[in-house]
Simulated scan of single mutants.
Amino acid sequence: MYTANSLRDKIIHFQNTSEQHFQKQKNLPNFFKLSLAYLSFFLSTFLAAFRLPFLWLKRLLPSSIASAKEQAVLQVNTQNIKQVLQDNEWVVLDFWAAWCGPCMMMEPALESFAQRNPDIAAGKIDADQNAELLKRYKVKGLPQILLFHQGKEVKRHAGALSEHELEAFVQQEMSKISQAV
Rank of each mutant, 00 (worst) to 15 (best):
P118N: 05
M105L: 15
A109S: 14
W99I: 12
D87I: 14
G101C: 13
N117S: 09
Q83W: 04
G101E: 01
D87L: 13
V92I: 11
E111H: 09
L93G: 11
D87W: 13
M105I: 06
F113Y: 08
N117G: 08
Q115E: 08
A122M: 03
N88E: 06
Q86L: 14
R116E: 09
W90M: 13
V84R: 07
A114D: 05
D94K: 12
E111L: 05
W99C: 13
D119M: 03
C100I: 00
E111S: 02
F95N: 00
L93R: 04
M104I: 06
A97E: 02
R116G: 05
P118D: 02
Q86P: 15
G123D: 04
L85K: 09
G123E: 04
C103P: 13
E107M: 07
G123W: 02
P102R: 11
V84I: 15
D119H: 08
N117A: 05
F113Q: 09
W99A: 06
F95R: 00
L93E: 00
A121H: 11
W90G: 05
A98W: 04
A114E: 03
I125H: 00
I120F: 00
P108M: 01
R116A: 12
L110G: 14
A114C: 06
G101D: 02
D94S: 15
I81H: 11
C100P: 10
I81G: 12
K82D: 15
Q115R: 09
E107G: 11
I125P: 07
F113P: 02
I125T: 01
G123L: 03
A98T: 03
V92W: 04
N88I: 02
V92N: 10
R116I: 05
E89C: 12
K82Y: 13
D87R: 15
V91S: 08
D87E: 14
N117M: 07
G123V: 02
A122L: 01
P102M: 06
I125A: 01
P102Q: 04
I120K: 07
C103F: 02
P102G: 08
E107Y: 09
Q115T: 07
W99E: 02
S112A: 15
E111P: 09
L85N: 11
Q115I: 07
N117Q: 12
D87C: 14
K82H: 14
S112G: 10
W99R: 12
I81C: 11
D87P: 15
Q83P: 15
V84M: 13
P118K: 03
C100A: 10
E111D: 04
F95E: 01
E89D: 14
A121D: 09
M104E: 09
G101K: 01
I120H: 03
D94Q: 10
E111R: 00
M104N: 14
W96S: 06
V91I: 05
Q115S: 04
K124L: 01
W99Y: 11
M105P: 06
Q83V: 11
G101M: 08
A122I: 05
E107Q: 06
N88Q: 07
G101Q: 04
Q115H: 07
V92A: 02
C100R: 07
P118W: 06
I125M: 01
I125Y: 01
M106F: 13
A97N: 08
K82G: 15
W90D: 03
K124S: 01
G123Y: 00
M106G: 14
V91Y: 10
E107D: 05
M104C: 15
E107A: 09
